[in-house]
């Protein structure tokens, strides 16, 4: 079989493997919705102030809530397939529209965070591995240990105290300054200015993670046979480090970056609610406060699907980088 055909087959296989997980997540979502006290009609009746039992029964029939569970599940599956995630009665908007509205800020924050965390993590891990057991290595290890133990929301608040309230370097909250009516590059600059503190806060934990991973990965690769071979051939130590070892050591870090996307979404709920960053995390926080379960479940579903998708993409990229993966 040609190499290309094998690649296609691998991609298709991975896609098929993702289907049961996606299905299971959607069903879990449906079950959680059932588990919650009260349904959409109770919420509507509560909003309206008073509703007769007859009217509520009529509404339930209209929404199909009087049907047996399997039927409701089938309807739910069909709705999700067409990206209909229900209606948010608080915002008086379909959940899917709300989510799409708030998607961009979160993606912006996440891309900035991953770039910063992976970039700096690789750099710090490299520095630590090259100066093994020196003061640099120790300092980086202690830094990793402390960031591992710090709650994100607290870091965010302390950042605000130091850099926003005392030094006045960065704004305390929001994504842009609407009052200034910036346009073009001024607006980009304004958003970037607002982005700094949330990105640093969210990336700290992952920075520590990637640093540790990169350090371990470099040390592991440095003990491999091909390094000895290169050394025997007379390749310089710098070339061995930066060309041979570094390239191989990067692989686990790339995979980990994919695996961590789920945790990153969780972290963005905290960071966005600290900095009032108007993304999905902030939306989830608002939904929590207004007891808007439909919306919360929609965000949950979308983030779970996002994780599946990212893992799929990372797997495929990874198998391109390292063809040995397909064999196993």
């Amino acid at each position: 079989m040609s190499h290309f055909a094998r690649r296609i087959r691998y991609v298709v296989k991975r896609l098929l493997q993702a289907i049961p997980i996606v299905l299971a997540i959607v069903i879990l979502n449906f079950l959680l919705l059932q588990l919650a006290e009260g349904d959409a009609v109770d919420v509507l009746a509560g909003e309206a102030g008073s509703a007769t039992p007859e009217y509520m029964a009529e509404l339930r029939a209209k929404f199909g809530l009087d049907q047996p569970l399997p039927v409701q599940l089938a309807v739910y599956l069909k709705n999700v397939m067409f990206f209909d995630l229900g209606y948010s009665f608080r915002h008086e908007m379909p959940v899917s529209e709300l989510i799409l509205d708030r998607m961009m800020p979160t993606l912006l924050l996440m891309v900035a965070t991953i770039t910063l965390a992976v970039g700096f993590g690789i750099f710090l891990g490299l520095v630590a591995a090259m100066g093994l057991n020196t003061w640099r290595d120790t300092a980086i290890s202690i830094f990793a240990l402390i960031t591992y133990a710090t709650p994100l929301f607290w870091v965010g608040l302390m950042m605000i105290v130091v850099f926003s309230l005392n030094l006045r370097w960065f704004p305390t909250s929001g994504m842009e300054n609407f009052a200034m009516f910036y346009e073009g590059w001024d607006r980009v600059w304004d958003i970037a200015h607002h982005l700094v503190l949330p990105t640093i806060t969210l990336s700290l934990f992952y920075l520590a993670l990637y640093t540790r991973l990169m350090r371990a990965s470099m040390l592991e690769q440095a003990g491999q046979d091909y390094v000895t071979t290169a050394r025997a051939k007379g390749v310089t130590e710098n070339r061995i480090m930066f060309v041979h070892v570094l390239r191989n050591a990067l692989l686990p870090v790339v995979t980990m970056a994919g695996v961590q996307v789920g945790a990153l979404i969780g972290g963005s709920v905290i960071v966005e609610s600290v900095f009032a960053w108007p993304g999905l995390g902030m939306l989830a926080f608002e939904a929590l406060f207004s007891r808007d379960l439909n919306l919360l479940l929609g965000i949950f579903l979308l983030s779970a699907l996002l994780v599946v998708a990212v893992n799929l993409v990372v797997d495929i990229i990874y198998s391109t980088l390292d063809p040995r993966i397909e064999v196993s």
Binding site: L32, L296, S303
Partner: peptide, 23 residues
Amino acid sequence: MRVTEMFQTIPSFIFAILLVAIM
């Protein structure tokens, strides 16, 4: 293991938020 995998895929903090909010 499929069940375990599914639980590991789900973003855990949001899942925890949901569970507490529902219960």
